[in-house]
Design a protein around this nucleic acid. Structure first.
Lengths: 234, 234
DNA sequence: ATGAAAAACTAACTTTGTTAGTCCGGGACG
DNA sequence: CGTCCCGGACTAACAAAGTTAGTTTTTCAT
């Protein structure tokens, strides 16, 4: 075939196809050949744009990170002018007076981004953060915590804690395995059965749109964490 | 060779070799052939004891879960008698008067187990919990929270939150990527650079045995979470 | 115009999970 | 005691997946 008049691929398009593959087929569905197929191309061609599967996963991580809305962390700017000019999804600056609301909104958006792509977590776990966007996110969060009055060292700990909470809840290890009806656990694990039943009731049954246990656990920890930080000394 | 006089393998020994392989070589080092080599055996022989790599990872998960000490969650028993008879590592019942100390000790042990085997996290992420031992852990935690006065539904949320915190911090996504000297981040990410520097100072430098940022972030969240739970209404 | 580089391809190699079929030792049963 | 059979090791081999080498054609800079 030879070189095409205009490139068929780009690092960006490859990463997007890879993310689609992971979303639809799970982490095991991410194969070089599968990604190539989606793009109407042969697997070897991908290597003209990414050095290998590792870098492909890096690119995929950048995509997911880019979905996190940093808007709620923005300083209380009178007029949105400088930082948010050519921005993509930035949804207005957060009111700095209530920094807790801003940080909470950021954390929820962070978690939501991963929940939109749940299969990526197994891929991204324990990967070094190199993505510019991720560094930017941490920097923005730390700056917001600093404006809230925390010392840099305290802000670092608080940011770490928030990160753990978001990623841990996105892992969903806790409720992922409780697919069986709660009553089945009763013989061997009575406290577990009771907790699951009470929790299901609070969720308003399987049909309702009420938040599930995962989300309620996340919200509980988020609230207690922010309340505790607000009531310094840390 | 034919059948040996006494079996060379067992599900248990295979899982242990697999865990060693993961600990030493990382998640990618877990190959059927590598595990077989460690046991002085050919890869195909493993299939007489485990159905495939998936079940091998399940067995590996059981091993890690078995390392978590549930002792701190035990009810305040006058004399250690029933539950802790043939137990393996159980380290005495926790004082029920101070349930926070027990739950905190359990959470630290939970985290420590994963930190001892950090590479397993990428493998175990997003796996269904089927292991008996894991269900037992949740049940024990929920029972302890119930004794502390939480309703079953509140206990479920608190247990979920604790789980998120432990697993998220074990992922170590936060600090894993900050291998570069903090000052290098300053041009683009001043708040990040400042936080890392202040944090390194609080850690007492690289040499000292003082807790790192990961551990301090975990401890901060744990403390605020337990304090918040103690100050009900939730 | 010409050469270098980019970007697609085909073909093939390696590693890894897995299966099929072989071989032998020891317990169950006649 | 002999026979059967099955557990548990083996060898051989396959398919899928990551990757590399080498080919071809187009574009761009000189």
């Amino acid at each position: 075939m030879g070189r095409p008049s205009r490139p068929l691929l780009s690092r960006e398009s490859i990463a997007r196809a890879a993310l689609d593959a992971v979303d639809e087929q799970g982490a095991d569905g991410l194969t070089m050949r599968a990604v190539a197929d989606r793009l109407g191309v042969k697997a070897a061609s991908l290597y003209n744009h990414v050095s290998g599967k590792d870098e492909l996963i890096d690119a995929l991580a950048e995509l997911v990170n880019a979905e996190i809305d940093l808007g709620p962390l923005a300083p209380a700017t009178e007029a949105a002018d400088a930082t948010d000019a050519g921005g993509a999804a930035g949804s207005g600056g957060g009111a700095d007076g209530d920094w807790r609301a801003g940080v909470a909104a950021y954390a929820r958006g962070y978690r939501a981004a991963f929940l939109r792509h749940p299969h990526t977590i197994a891929l991204l776990a324990r990967r070094r953060v190199g993505a510019e966007r991720q560094l930017l996110g941490y920097d923005t969060l730390l700056a917001a915590l600093g404006r809230a009055g925390l010392t840099p060292a305290d802000a670092a700990e608080a940011a770490a804690a928030l990160d753990y909470l978001v990623l841990g809840s996105a892992l969903e290890t806790f409720t992922a395995g409780f697919a069986r009806p709660a009553a089945e656990y009763r013989p061997g694990y009575p406290a577990l059965a009771g907790a699951l039943e009470a929790s299901a009731e609070r969720s308003g049954g399987p049909g309702g749109g009420a938040p599930g246990l995962d989300e309620r656990g996340f919200e509980l920890a988020l609230r207690l964490l922010l309340d505790g930080l607000a009531a310094r000394p840390v």
